[in-house]
């Protein structure tokens, strides 16, 4: 066993009747990283994560978390991990501080509740009933509950689904904070922007199968190396100049607006060089980089939003 690997998933399979939710899924999560399992709804993210947490038992395959078997060593493991479940609720009329106090009482060692609530911006809500909290506040409370036992690994399943962009950003900062405290974070999301912003590495899952695993930038480089530079200029013959750039593979022109498509790191520099060499008057300049969404589209032939 590699001590740097906090989670090792080896060829697990889980079916619900005829639905195969996880099929030969393998990946590993390293100590101290934010690892994302990403894919569209129904891809098998929750199933896989709950197998790793010990909440479900895979039909086949092997899982080790902190060197423990999630099903067999469940009690020992539960003390060392923190989980946030997709779409979980608490009792409608439980107060924020009561939830934290109760969760603290469940673990032999727990961190103080007050600083935790303060850190998560819930301190002035400590006497509020769960049902009166906003979506973002509920998720922050679930983060608090996942951190209460000072876990080594934190599991976050679709943490920001249903939140508005502002609440989402606030949560992203909190997840970064969790990693800064030396914890390993394993999360799932169907939001590619979230994965790119948060994750050190991601595993793309589709129809229960892992398609590829790597840092987002590497996945983009590998599967979608093309990038586009958009230049608006009324310089005569600009299109021909751009076509002459070796790293450019295609140039489209619409009036004075040129879309220069190419691959490789030098494309942008080459375009800038050409502009300045021919003293082109430029009214717009922007680069369009592919995202994880494009990677997903390339790998599966489908848009992840579909």
């Amino acid at each position: 066993m590699n001590p740097d690997l906090v989670i090792e998933v080896d060829a697990i399979r889980k079916a619900y009747g005829p639905t195969v939710a996880a099929d030969d899924v393998s990946f590993a999560v390293r100590r101290g990283e934010i690892f994302g399992l990403i894919g569209p709804n129904g891809a098998g993210k929750t199933t896989t994560m709950e197998c790793v947490e010990g909440l479900r038992e895979p039909d086949a395959g092997r899982i080790a978390v902190l060197g423990l078997d999630p099903v067999r060593d469940r009690r020992a493991l539960q003390l060392r991990i923190g989980v946030q479940l997709q779409e979980a609720q608490l009792q409608k009329r439980i107060k924020v501080w009561e939830a934290v106090a109760f969760w603290r009482s469940l673990y032999p060692t727990a961190i103080d509740g007050d600083p935790l609530l303060r850190q998560l911006g819930l301190h002035d809500k400590r006497d509020a009933w769960f049902m009166t909290l906003s979506g973002g506040q509920k998720q922050r409370l679930f983060i608090a509950l996942a951190l209460v036992n000072d876990p080594e690994v934190v599991f976050l399943d679709e943490l920001t689904t249903g939140l508005d962009p502002q609440a989402r950003r606030a949560i992203w900062d909190l997840v970064h904070d969790i990693r800064e405290r030396g914890k390993t974070v394993f999360l799932t999301t169907h939001l590619m922007e979230e994965a790119e912003r948060l994750c050190d590495r991601v595993a793309i899952i589709d129809h229960g199968r892992i398609v590829d695993v790597d840092p987002p930038a590497k996945l983009i480089e590998r599967h979608c190396p093309q990038r586009t530079v958009v230049v608006a200029t009324d310089h005569d013959g600009a299109a021909d100049r751009f076509r002459a750039i070796p790293s450019a593979t295609a140039v489209r022109r619409e009036g004075g607006r040129h879309e220069i498509e190419g691959r490789g790191d030098t494309l942008v520099t080459d375009v800038i060089h050409t502009i300045s060499e021919h003293r082109m008057p430029v009214s717009e300049f922007r680069t369009v980089l592919p995202t994880l969404e494009d990677v997903f589209l390339t790998l599966t032939g489908r848009s992840i939003r579909a």
């Binding site: 909440l55 009690r75 989980v83 979980a88 969760w103 469940l106």
Partner: peptide, 10 residues
């Protein structure tokens, strides 16, 4: 999901 959430604790 309250039962499930509690089951994910000790």
């Amino acid at each position: 999901g309250i039962l499930k959430r509690l089951r994910a604790t000790p």
